[in-house]
Design a protein around this nucleic acid. Structure first.
Length: 91
DNA sequence: CCCCTGACACTTA
DNA sequence: ATAAGTGCCAGGG
């Protein structure tokens, strides 16, 4: 699994990163919401796939959660870190 | 070009 | 409420 940068991704990927980066602190967006904001409401699958490949700290992918409100995974530190950051930023 | 995988979401049993 | 199966899109080999 190669670490891809936002500029390495296609248009959709870049858009996804742009949306995630726009997520305000203490806010969480579901993959479906991000996909919809990216222009493809049915591409939530791709969103997760792309986010998983992205390793850029500039992208707060930890603010992206599942439709259930749970978290799928986290490349940088694991789900524990994700939950931790969320709990911290949520305040 | 074809096939497989994947941080999801929804429906049905 | 929980479990399993199916459908979707994009990226990688």
């Amino acid at each position: 699994m190669l670490k891809r940068r936002p500029d390495s991704f296609s248009k959709f990927g870049k858009w996804v990163f742009a949306v995630v980066r726009k997520i305000p602190r203490g806010k969480t967006m579901t993959y479906g919401q991000v996909a919809r904001a990216a222009g493809s409401p049915r591409a939530y699958r791709a969103v997760g796939s792309i986010l998983s490949q992205n390793y850029d700290p500039k992208i707060p992918c930890h603010r992206v959660v599942r439709a259930d409100g749970g978290m799928g995974g986290y490349n940088r530190g694991g789900v524990s870190t994700k939950a931790k950051i969320l709990a911290r930023e949520r305040a």
